[in-house]
């Protein structure tokens, strides 16, 4: 298992900025790269790509279903299309197109879902996607990746140029502290230890990993010494690493900016229940839609802020003392 211990949480580029800068660079190198936008670009976001490569920035209007279909057609002509819009509209509005034209054909289209999770500005539940991972993970042939910082976003995009099938890249919004440095390379599947420890094992994904790391002082003060593992690939899952870390820690927690049904928690439950059953605590959005509010308020209310994560883990850890096998 890869290790990359995070010492300090230093602010990096937002994932959206990282996406746009990187894709612009990749387009310099690779003529196959095109971007399709469903009327979400601004001058400072996808506009960066549009300004550098106007002929390969394809405005598709507010029409996500057709946008995914056009991308599939472009892929058959040898292009590597990066489709971008709000995650919710790509996954849900264009679900049938994704299923029939991408998952069922294997065409190498990259769906770059922006503002995934509950942090979407003040837009509310229509624009939040808390159920996208569960949905996309269920599709045969689909790869689902949630990068945790700018370096991982960059590495995922670069990796995707040579990957043969469709990929859903889930980009969360908001501040994005650095987990890795510029030497980071991505592989699928993968799991990366970002903090060594003993018990419990905390598995997280996307930007939520930085909120788990921010919860560490509280957890340590509460007497825990957790190992924290960042899981960028939600499908395929790095099963070997997850089983190994569960075996070592004895108890497992999953934390995600997504419903607790069918996302990282669900995927980990599927693997561990079959291969190494342990106590599992799934933290995420309960089985409900959220609302429009400030980001700090939302993560607190819906249980994924550093403080809320720390409270939830400490309370569960003390309730399950003695129920888990002793750590060897």
């Amino acid at each position: 298992m890869k290790r990359a211990e995070v010492i300090d949480l230093v602010e990096g580029l937002t994932l959206r900025e990282a996406f746009n800068r990187t894709l612009s660079e990749l387009a310099d190198e690779d003529p196959r790269v095109v971007m399709l936008d469903a009327d979400n670009a601004t001058a400072t976001t996808e506009g960066v790509f549009a300004a550098a490569h106007p002929e390969r920035f394809l405005q598709m209007g507010a029409a996500e279903q057709n946008m995914v279909g056009v991308a599939a057609g472009l892929a058959t002509m040898g292009f590597v299309p990066f489709v971008t819009s709000y995650a919710c509209f790509q996954v849900f509005r264009a679900h049938d197109q994704v299923r029939v034209l991408l998952a069922q054909t294997g065409l190498p289209v990259r769906l770059v879902g922006q503002s995934a999770g509950i942090l979407t500005g003040l837009t509310g539940k229509t624009h939040q996607s808390i159920d996208d991972v569960a949905t996309m993970r269920a599709m045969p042939g689909m790869t689902v990746v949630a990068p945790g910082d700018e370096h991982e976003t960059r590495a995922v995009l670069r990796w995707s140029l040579e990957f043969s099938g469709p990929v859903y890249i889930r980009l969360a919004r908001g501040s994005a502290p650095l987990l890795f440095d510029s030497s980071y390379t991505f592989e699928s599947p993968s799991a990366i230890v970002v903090r060594e420890g003993r018990d419990p094992a905390i598995l997280s994904t996307g930007l939520q990993t930085s909120r788990v790391l921010a919860a560490l002082p509280g957890l340590v003060a509460g007497g825990l010494d957790p190992v924290v593992v960042h899981i960028p690939t939600l499908k395929p899952l790095d099963e070997e690493s997850i089983v190994e870390v569960a075996r070592r820690a004895g108890r497992v927690v999953t934390v995600e900016d997504h419903t607790v049904l069918g996302g990282l928690g669900g995927a980990v439950a599927e693997v561990l229940s079959a291969r190494h059953p342990v106590l599992l605590h799934r933290i995420g959005i309960d089985d409900r839609y959220a609302e429009s509010a400030g980001h700090d308020e939302l993560v607190e209310r819906y249980g994924i802020s550093p403080a809320a994560v720390a409270r939830s883990i400490l309370s569960w850890a003390s309730a399950t003392v003695g129920l888990a096998p002793a750590v060897s």
């Binding site: 394809l58 599939a72 057609g73 002509m77 034209l101």
Partner: peptide
């Protein structure tokens, strides 16, 4: 869905 893909091919 096929029609959208055809538009993508022509654009390609």
């Amino acid at each position: 869905v096929g029609f959208s893909a055809a538009v993508g091919m022509a654009l390609g």
